[in-house]
């Protein structure tokens, strides 16, 4: 059975889990991975991966300036702001 290091993956995804969630998800995800293992029954040698549902290419826009939001509207949904900036805990490199 495929084991997931749930704690590592949750950290990569920036999601804090309770211990109880970690255990439960671990079991459920292993079960799901076991199920998706059936894909290995298929020979996909030489098959192109399908990334998009439509076969378009070269979709671009013209380099034209459009109006932006006001600072007020940009920050309207922000949980915290400071001098027109989005306020965050101190970023240390």
């Amino acid at each position: 059975m495929q084991e997931i290091n749930v704690q590592y993956v949750a950290e990569l995804a920036r999601i804090r889990l309770t211990e109880e969630e970690e255990t439960r998800f671990g079991g459920q995800l292993s079960q799901i991975l076991e199920y998706v293992d059936k894909l290995n029954q298929l020979d996909v040698e030489g098959i192109d991966p399908m990334t998009h549902a439509v076969p378009l290419v070269n979709v671009t826009r013209k380099d034209e300036v459009q109006p932006s939001l006001s600072n007020e509207l940009a920050l309207k949904n922000a949980p915290a702001s400071l001098n027109g900036l989005f306020k965050v805990p101190k970023i240390v490199e």
Partner: peptide, 18 residues
């Protein structure tokens, strides 16, 4: 990816859109 102006400076968060 958007029509906001590509310009240095400006008041913070004024050359922004959704």
């Amino acid at each position: 990816w958007c029509g906001c102006v590509n310009q240095f400076g400006g008041e913070p968060n004024t050359h922004v859109c959704p």
